[in-house]
């Protein structure tokens, strides 16, 4: 069956974003909007949480907001 999703929430996709620049949880959620991935809100939250725990990115505060980032 054809999928309408044009974005996939994968560890590799998250890694690429976090190497490019530090992002908040909200920034990441914006990259993987449910209407683009076809996932539910709950699935998105659960999968993204698992991926972030596995990637264990560095953290820093920018403008009082926690940002995640990775270095290559």
């Amino acid at each position: 069956t054809p999928s309408s999703s044009d974005v996939q929430l994968t560890e590799e996709a998250v890694r690429r974003y976090l190497i490019r620049k530090p992002m908040t949880t909200k920034d990441l959620l914006k990259k993987f909007q449910t209407k683009r991935t076809g996932l539910s809100s709950e699935q998105t939250v659960n999968v993204l949480a698992q991926i972030l725990k596995r990637l264990n990115p560095e953290r820093k505060n920018i403008n009082d907001k926690m940002h995640f980032y990775l270095t290559e």
Binding site: T25, S41, L48, A49, L52, K53
Partner: peptide
């Protein structure tokens, strides 16, 4: 909507509580 985004961000941060 932005309120849904806020809710999702809050849920994600709760999931990551120990980690963050």
């Amino acid at each position: 909507s932005s309120s849904e985004a806020d809710e999702m961000a809050a849920a994600l941060e709760a999931e990551l509580h120990d980690f963050m």
